[in-house]
Nucleic acid binder design. Structure first.
Length: 187
DNA sequence: AAAGAGATGGTCT
DNA sequence: GACCATCTCTTTT
């Protein structure tokens, strides 16, 4: 179980995104350890009409233009938080949205945070997984590659069994045809 | 099993 | 004032 190297996130979001599948996102927010395996992601780039960064840098999307390996957190529909892994180089506004995880550790705490919902619904959505891992707006900009962070991206050597599935992104109204959504075969 | 709608607030025009 | 990178509950087949 080693932290993910920042250099592995420095490429194009569309190339980096499928490589995030199978990695482990660890939360130590609040003291307890909760972990989930990345099962579904979506890539967003600066030249992409569906991306928050398409119209340039603003206070909200500032993190996406920063260093790769940091966490970009935003408020969705005024209700839910969504978490992204920043990719690309400094100055390039791109990131990969974490759409779903598979619970790996701390499932009891996830159940509490998710109000006793069935296990398969604990982390099968971008807002849901943030809830289960207690990710809030405070965590925008956290370095996922630093061992001292409360939120980290880890590699436990998991090997994907089968072929990564791709498809169009979800919940957007522009650039709907780009097949930049990736998920594990087991889903 | 699928479809519809309300909640709710920040961000940008 | 419009637009959301969503979720949950309710209503209808």
């Amino acid at each position: 179980m080693r932290p993910v190297a920042r250099s592995s996130l420095a490429g194009d979001a569309v190339d980096v995104a499928p490589g995030l599948l199978g990695l482990v996102l660890e939360s130590r927010v609040g003291g307890a350890v909760v972990r989930g395996r990345v099962a579904e992601v979506e890539a967003y780039r600066e030249d992409d009409p569906a991306s928050h960064t398409f119209r340039g840098e603003t206070p909200r999307n500032r993190t996406m233009f920063g260093m790769p390996g940091h966490l970009y957190v935003y408020l969705s529909y005024g209700v839910h938080r969504c978490a992204n892994v920043v990719t690309g180089s400094q100055g390039n506004g791109a990131a990969v949205l974490l759409r779903a995880l598979l619970p790996v550790a701390g499932i009891e705490l996830m159940r509490e945070r998710r109000d006793g919902r069935p296990d398969r619904e604990l982390t099968n959505g971008p807002g849901k997984l943030c809830r289960a891992l207690a990710i809030g707006s405070d965590h925008d900009g956290v370095d996922l590659c630093s061992s001292s962070s409360t939120l980290r991206l880890l590699d436990d050597g998991y090997e994907i069994d089968g072929e990564v599935r791709t498809g169009p992104r979800i919940g957007i109204s522009r650039a709907v045809d780009r097949p930049w959504r990736f998920r594990l075969p087991s889903d």
